[in-house]
């Protein structure tokens, strides 16, 4: 039986106008500049599963998160959510910026409960807040405190409690642990996995850290300059990475279990998304690029082991 799809993105595009101000354009004769932050992204997430988007800064992964949650609108394409649209919640990277410093923790966690059901009596809301704080490993007494009284890891627990308060089916997590120390990261990742099992949550998990992604995801999508260059079930991706960029990422991440002290790092950097290379965006850095790659843009094609890859050499 095919698992039920909860979220589906089709042909997502988001362009930003990053032109200089009008007067500068006229005087300096500069054209308009358009940044293709998300440049044709398709994916589906099955209910109860985790899709991870991984990529380096500027690859468009956070823009996808904002599109999926409806914080910004796509320029083209669509996102279908087979559920109650109110049951989407988001967890942000910076637990210092995402909690209102003037509100007590109990009020922060209570807000989504009240938004969902305005008629809910106050004592019942308070009971639910206590329960949520306990679910994420805090104590009901913490509800009386303000966010500044907590460490980064505890604040991220508060963010998770707030997200759960909205009784979500689908959680979008944008780099939820990258501001945290590793031992605290482990606590938060374990908590998120436990909650997923307990409440049958579906995650869109965004991270630049492939080892974190490996721990959390069922399916992994690797993004490069606004496009998904490879998407596959976790095991298939790690056992046999197909796209040269996925290989580059796997080769360059320092690893504890198998450190490579004599590595010859790959040269080059991610090009500017304002003026991306013609054809395949990865072609200037690609060790196996052919003439065709500089002219044509590869489309997603099925890869061995399941999933898709955008690469001429791999099809």
């Amino acid at each position: 039986m095919k698992p039920e799809t909860l979220v589906e993105a089709a042909g997502l595009h988001r362009r930003f106008d990053v032109s200089a101000p009008w007067l500068n354009r006229v005087i300096e004769r500069r054209p308009r500049q358009i940044l293709n932050a998300v440049d044709g992204v398709d994916f589906r997430i099955a209910r109860g599963e985790t899709l991870a988007l991984v990529g380096e800064s500027g690859c468009g992964k956070s823009t996808v998160a904002k599109l999926v949650t409806g914080l910004i609108r796509p320029t083209e394409g669509s996102i279908a959510f087979m559920g109650d649209r109110r049951r989407i919640q988001m967890i942000f990277q910076d637990p210092y910026a995402s909690l209102n410093p003037r509100w007590r923790v109990a009020d922060i966690v209570a807000e989504p409960i009240r938004t969902l059901d305005r008629a809910r009596p106050t004592p019942e809301v308070a009971r639910r807040v206590d329960e949520l704080l306990e679910t994420v490993g805090l104590s009901p007494r913490d509800g009386r405190k303000f966010p500044h009284e907590f460490s980064g890891g505890q604040r991220q627990r508060i963010s998770i409690a707030r997200a759960l308060a909205g009784e979500p089916e689908f959680l979008v997590c944008d780099e939820p642990t990258s501001a945290l120390d590793v031992s605290v990261q482990a606590q938060i990742l374990n908590l998120m996995k436990r909650l997923q099992k307990e409440f049958g949550l579906t995650y869109l998990f965004i991270s630049h850290d492939l080892s974190v992604v490996r721990h959390m995801a069922d399916v992994i999508a690797v993004m490069y300059l606004g496009r998904i260059v490879e998407m596959a079930p976790k095991a298939a991706l790690f056992e046999a990475p197909s796209h040269p960029y996925t290989r580059l990422l796997l080769d360059t991440i320092p690893d504890l279990t198998a450190p490579r002290r004599d590595r010859a790092p790959m040269a080059g950097e991610v090009p500017s998304p304002i003026d991306p290379p013609k054809g395949c965006a990865f072609q200037p850095r690609c060790p196996i690029a052919e003439a065709r790659c500089t002219r044509e843009r590869p489309e997603p094609t099925p890869r061995p082991g399941g999933g898709v890859v955008r690469c001429f050499a791999r099809t």
């Binding site: 590793v182 031992s183 605290v184 482990a186 991440i253 279990t257 198998a258």
Partner: peptide, 24 residues
Amino acid sequence: QGLMGSIPSLRRDVEALTQIPGSM
């Protein structure tokens, strides 16, 4: 030991990461 266990690995899967309770 706890620190090493809490780092997710790129090469193998574990069900749960080692957790050091509390914080520094």
